[in-house]
């Protein structure tokens, strides 16, 4: 191989790496980490890193399901309410003496039911996912307010709180749980035949149907998966805080969807990975942490998250246009 061909190959490798969306975000994250390490002495300490990871654990667990759903062309606005509702229901059961494990199972079961409700309405009746899950968002939050009469639930057993507050070698359980689930989720969505079907549904739903894929069954499964993961996240959140708040998870859906989109998914479906979505949540958490450390007024946080989403999507769209893909 001549030297010229070799440099050409190197350049091609570099180009194909940069064409992978996840690497682009990873480079941005590495750049931000280096910059922040220089700018702030506190940034690269284990305390700060763990605090940042803890703050994104809840979102990244939900983002796994949301990625699967968005790859198939779906979309769920109701996850924030599910987080609040299921966390509170599990908490109420425990306060009344239900065994911890059973209460957790019931909580997750309720999340799965909410998701199945969404999935059935969307796939069998044919109502648009945005409207269906927007309705479910209010329905579930409303139900939570009715049942709790607006009061927070405290007095949870310690054996439950350990799920959110316990540590393994100084790393909080929620971080470990989130990382393990992300790894499993990414593997399954990449490799398993069952989950790969979502790329076909999102790519061309009618062709997927003609190819013998059971599209409506997959859709119901996906919404149930998001519901179940949101419920699990809500229960971990309750354990971490040691109490269930009726406003828990409010607005979470938009942060999760933003992270998944930053991570490379699109509302049209057919693209996205769990690893990308995790990097998306990581980038958002990193930006928030950086702003705090740099002493920027917290009121800027939301503004910066919005800007990040728009910039990420614009870069992606423009690069696709340049390559003639749009």
């Amino acid at each position: 191989m001549s030297q010229r061909e070799q440099t050409k190959n190197h350049r091609n490798l570099w180009r194909s790496l940069t064409e992978i969306h996840e690497f682009m975000i990873l480079f941005i994250i590495i750049g931000a980490v280096i910059l922040m390490t220089i700018l702030s002495p506190i940034f690269f300490t284990s305390g700060n890193i763990l605090a940042t990871l803890l703050s994104l654990a809840i979102e990244s667990i939900i983002a796994i399901g949301m990625t699967v759903l968005m790859v198939s062309g779906g979309f769920d606005m109701s996850v924030g309410s599910t987080v609040g509702f299921t966390g509170a229901m599990a908490a109420m059961l425990m306060v009344r003496g239900t065994p911890v494990i059973l209460a957790i199972m019931v909580g997750i079961g309720l999340g799965v039911l909410i998701g199945m409700g969404n999935g059935l309405i969307i796939s069998k009746i044919g109502i648009n996912p945005f409207i269906t899950t927007l309705g479910m968002l209010n329905l579930v939050r409303g139900l939570l307010l009715v049942i709790t009469k607006g009061k927070n639930i405290t007095g949870l057993p310690d054996s439950f709180k350990i799920l959110g507050q316990g540590k393994f070698f100084n790393v909080q359980y929620p971080i470990l749980i989130a990382i393990i689930l992300v790894i499993i989720g990414d593997f399954l969505l990449r490799k398993s035949q069952f989950f790969r079907q979502n790329y076909y549904i999102g790519g061309n739903e009618r062709a997927a149907l003609l190819s013998g894929i059971n599209v409506s069954k997959m859709k119901v499964f996906n919404y149930a998966l998001v519901g179940g993961l949101a419920a699990f996240a809500g229960i971990i959140m309750t354990a971490r805080l040691g109490a269930a708040s009726v406003s828990a998870g409010t607005g979470l859906e938009l942060r999760v969807i933003s992270a998944v989109i930053i991570g490379g998914a699109s509302l049209q479906g057919g693209e996205g990975t769990v690893a990308g979505a995790f990097l998306g949540t990581l980038l958002m958490a990193l930006i928030q942490n950086s702003l705090t450390l740099l002493g920027v007024d917290v009121y800027w946080n939301t503004f910066v998250i919005g800007t990040t989403l728009l910039v990420a999507v614009m870069i992606d769209t423009l690069s696709k246009k340049r390559k003639g893909l749009l």
Binding site: F194, Q197, Y200
Partner: peptide, 26 residues
Amino acid sequence: LFLKMSYRENLIAPDMKRFIKGMNIL
């Protein structure tokens, strides 16, 4: 067709199960 997907991915669409090597992994 799945226009946004590769030839390779299109080809297996009607019969993906044939390409499983245990544990549902492709």
